[in-house]
């Protein structure tokens, strides 16, 4: 049930999708894995929108070279606390009504179930495919929605994965990009992170269309957006079983 204060706070979005949808946001538990360039805007906009519980996961502390894009942090935060702890402090200033759970640790096969078992949706804000594949496997196994984005330079891609209905990350990108220090600017992570938050809000409220089975790419340098329909790989070693199960 929404309080009088909450109804006033979220008035402008309740005008669009109604009280019931706002209550769904309040009840939702969403994990943001990675609190860097993508994780910063995702967490800020989900906090502002009134997501009930955020699970923030990252093992790193902010460094000077992060500050061109990781807008949750400032100069006073460098090399002090882990990102989830700092993020919680900032997000609580924005909205004291939401619950924030912090996990200042890296996700491994051994701890992923403990960290993510109770969430309703997982947002991939990682900077490496090794952990992305792990997240994908877990989400497919547990049938949890996974909102993927990845960026480099002025370019980014986003898709929403619903296990059993859409291609998984392994169907789409079975070969990871080369590991390297990648160029990036804050406007790219800002835009793609906001789009990920938008996907979470639409997914939970049921309002609007999601990027399920669609790979959306943005080239901010040349103002080009592309959207292609993508299909599951029938022999995907990660998710093909979920489709067989649906057909039975």
């Amino acid at each position: 049930m929404l309080s009088e204060k909450e109804l006033r706070r979220y008035d402008r979005q309740v005008m669009m999708f109604g009280k019931e949808a706002q209550e769904k946001l309040k009840k939702a538990k969403v994990a943001i894995v990675g609190l860097g360039g993508l994780g910063s805007p995702i967490s800020i906009y989900l906090t502002a929108a009134g997501i009930g519980q955020l699970f923030l996961i990252d093992e790193q502390k902010p460094e000077l070279s992060n500050l061109n894009r990781q807008i949750l942090y400032g100069e006073e935060d460098l090399d002090k606390k882990a990102k989830p702890v700092l993020a919680k402090e900032k997000l609580r200033q924005l909205n004291s009504e939401i619950k924030v759970r912090t996990y200042s640790k890296r996700i491994y096969r051994e701890n992923i179930e403990d960290l993510l078992n109770e969430v309703d949706a997982v947002v991939d804000a990682l900077d490496n495919f090794e952990t992305r594949y792990l997240l994908n496997e877990f989400c497919v196994k547990k049938r949890k929605p996974l909102i993927h984005a990845a960026v480099e330079g002025f370019y980014g891609q986003i898709t929403t994965i619903l296990p059993g209905r859409t291609p998984c990350l392994n169907c789409l990108f079975p070969n990871p990009p080369k590991k390297k220090k990648f160029p990036i600017i804050g406007v790219t992570t800002g835009l793609l992170g906001v789009l990920q938050a938008n996907e979470v809000i639409k997914l939970i409220t049921g309002y609007g269309d999601n990027l399920m089975g669609k790979l959306f790419t943005y080239d901010l340098l040349h103002n080009k957006a592309e959207c292609i329909d993508v299909k599951p790989n029938p022999s995907c070693p990660v998710c093909s079983g979920t489709f067989r199960l649906r057909r039975q």
Binding site: A149, A150, V151, Q157, P176, I184
Partner: peptide, 10 residues
């Protein structure tokens, strides 16, 4: 054939 750059940053 659509050719996409592989990106992994976040």
């Amino acid at each position: 054939i659509a050719l996409f750059p592989p990106v992994g940053g976040g």
